[in-house]
């Protein structure tokens, strides 16, 4: 799990162009949207692309993203549960 979380941090920094951040700046349990990393609606859509591109998981309904993208940990748990 920790390895996946670490990997996800790297992927998110790259996919979302968070160039000014390092992996250690990101708390796996902090909210991704709103206060935490301050991501916006485009980032949410970009995370859907990330899941598909890097992990082969498709999310058809963007509304499902809300739960999945609460934090890096919730994303990692979702990937673990859905990985074929």
């Amino acid at each position: 799990m920790d390895a996946l979380i670490d990997q996800l941090k790297g992927e998110i920094i790259e996919q979302l162009n968070l160039e000014d951040l390092k992996k250690e700046d990101i708390d796996a349990d902090a909210p991704l949207f709103g206060e935490g990393l301050g991501l916006d609606s485009i980032d949410a859509l970009e995370l859907i692309v990330l899941l598909e591109k890097n992990h082969g998981i498709k999310i058809a309904n963007p509304a499902d993203g809300k739960k999945i993208f609460q934090s890096i940990r919730s994303m990692a748990e979702f990937i673990k549960a859905n990985k074929k």
Binding site: Q15, L16, N17, I42, D43, L45, E46, V49, E52, K53
Partner: peptide
Amino acid sequence: YFPSPAIFV
């Protein structure tokens, strides 16, 4: 094939 919303916008 991975069109990106962050690019498209």
